[in-house]
Nucleic acid binder design. Sequence first.
RNA 1: GCGGAUGUGGCGGAAUUGGCAGACGCGCUAGACUUAGGAUCUAGUGGGUAUCCGUGCAGGUUCAAGUCCUGUCAUCCGCACCA
Length: 813
Amino acid sequence: MIVLNLPEIEKKWQKKWADTGLYKFDKNSDKPKKYVLEMFSYPSGANLHVGHWYNYGLTDVYARYSRMKGFNVFHPMGFDAFGLPAENYAIKTGIHPKDSTLKNIETMERQLKEMGASFDWDYEIKTCLPDYYKWTQWCFVQLYKRGLAYRANAPVNWCPKCNTVLANEQVVDGCCERCGTPVIRKHLTQWFFKITDYAEELLDGLDKLDWPEKTKLMQKNWIGKSTGSEIKFQVVGGGELSVFTTRADTLYGCTYVVISPEHELVDSLTTPEQKKAVEEYKLYAAKASEIDRLSTTREKTGVFTGSYAINPINGRKIPIWAADYVLASYGTGVVMAVPSHDERDFEFATKYGLPIERVVEKLREDQDDTLPFVEYDGKLVNSEGFNGLTVTEGKKAITEYLEKNGKGNFKTTYRLRDWLISRQRYWGAPIPIIHCPKCGDVVVPEEDLPVELPYDVDFTPDGTSPLAKHEGFMNCKCPKCGGDAKRDPDTMDTFVCSSWYFLRYPDNRDSEKAWDPEIINRMLPVDKYVGGAEHACMHLLYARFFTKAFRDMGYLNFDEPFTSLVHQGTILGPDGEKMSKSRGNVVSPDEYISKYGSDAFRMYLGFGFAYIEGGPWNDGGIRSISKYLDRVERLVDKVYSGKDENDPSKDSKELLFIKNRTIKAVDGDLDTFSFNTAIARLMEFTNALYRYTEGSYDIEVAKDCIRTLLLLLAPIAPHFSEELWERTGGEYSIFNQDFPKFDEKHLVMDEITYPLQVNGKLKDRFALPADYSEEQIREYVLDKYSDIFEGMEIVKLIIVPKRIVNAVIRPKK
RNA sequence: GCGGAUGUGGCGGAAUUGGCAGACGCGCUAGACUUAGGAUCUAGUGGGUAUCCGUGCAGGUUCAAGUCCUGUCAUCCGCACCA
């Protein structure tokens, strides 16, 4: 017997699949479409790692399964090719990001093909090429025209020694990862996308999505809707401060106001006497790293600005402090401090000797209302006409009172912030904006796109955006007035590239427009999106925002980009830690693939882990998969050898039951990415076939079961199944066959084995015809187990037909 | 600190959603075949000096709990004083 050599036959079938165009997407098919998409990958230098295989190999199982289930599957692949790593690599080695990236892409394309994944490469995209980023820039232009892109001051991480902007990832313990200098925050004028305009819809839309609940919860918390009140405080000596609060009921207890030290009004509020102290404090706050500043254990700090505000409810004069426990980016950047009913305010007031005055009392005796009393179960006191109201009533009444007097209103705020997209980097899509001394910010006309990224750029970090040093790039004419102007030297966040790539795939060669609405309205939304959970709040939210914004501009007609979402787990190193070069625990698939074949490798990934959990790598099981495939091959050859004795009278009932049960289970499991149980069921089916084919048996039945087994196995081990399918005389290709259907009539059991529990403990088992009624079961049990019930009182006899029998008994008195 | 998730044999993991815990596989033990075995096949395999105990731990609900509730511990992930 010749045992097939998987690595060899894999090459053969890959070639045949390519030659026959098996995975070419048929635009004109009348089957229902299914858009199956993995989050595209970043072309890093190394070979495909185990994580890629886990993501792409197993989603390919789903794509092939869907195809056999009768869908017209669209399964494209591309590369998220801009980004920091290529630029850092270039700084270190001098190899240009474009060269290294394109080379990496080539390697990955080859490896993905060797994986045997059913991508249609005709639809490939690479975000770093002008024919793609032209349209990324076009997206920017549309958002700009729609009023969804704006420029504002925003802080960046700045290393004073390297003179460069750092990504969060480059800040380690508050210091620059390269030189160890403490990082400070520096303000730059940067571009934002107004995602907050869509906060409400982004929140509402979650309900309709077939996404993991935890992901939806994370997005919900990230958007962070909060309903409360906006209250205006007059500043003594002129001006006004607006605060947001969820506790308007405590307004009488507000004894001071706190403003974020970065707030634009801080300077004007600071009196000459306090100027030095406030300036020092601002510096202190700017130096403190995010982590330090936001740590709970860190002592609250602040400084008096010298100014006072008027509490609008009682006309009281209260001091205005600046403190970094208030964030400029949330609410209005100003807080009304009620130390008696807020933990942070209490701590701060205690430290600085500010007044603490109770305005809420407990409602019930069992409550502990020591200050700070933050419970909502309370009633108002020391609040003049509002005394006696509950917290909820008080919020409403006080805000209504303020509203009547023009001093406040109800307000909803979101934790979600606008999306800062400017990056002071080279390797990204240039922002298509021209700064004209006369006309201001001018958007590049669409016919002038793309704004090409120049190749000959000095990207050593020296305090200036790399593009800013490139005269040829920077100098241009203003599209409005024709005068000398400068380009925006920044590039876009790579999340911009990945916020619309799924729209580009179906129409990736279009040179006239970003996408053809007619095509994408037909092809989108993505029916199954697969990728890591780490993108729950950023990428997945940005992509939803883009979809909604372009829908409102009339470029597409659906509300959500990804109908159904699956997160694959993470494969960790054998040590249980995240795989990383620095830890030295990276597992390369290459060796396993050349030894066992890509089918065995992907099948092991499916079998050895719960897909959405992932877990530490362990190669103990890969051999067993290889052995399993050998076992299937031996079975096929045995049944098709013509040497076994045919016995058409053999009882096939059990085998047919298992066959149909297996079809049903595998179908359901593949649909829900439960690859491990699907494979377990296939093994059981195989074991049953081995039992059946001992001695003589009905060869036709066995052959039929084997064809079913191969069809079920095909999505999981495509090359192997195609090879054996051919060996059984099956028509090319196995992937053009229908996924097997089960027949309910073989799943009907004549007999059920019941467990008998006595007082909840298993005592025995008995078999009864499946159609026995509860009453018949009762009679049978009382009769059969009369010895157990002898001298006992049967308190209850619980009978769940087709499930279980439980007798609750106790000794007779 | 807050939030989320997870916790089941020596190991990876199942468990029809409240109904026989440990499917399937690895590993291990014994045996068969064999010149040989990292091949193949067969049997066994949660623990326990066996009417018992077992899903991190302690309670609770229920005829019945891995599953629901309360508390608690551990690990991982996310977020960062959210007013």
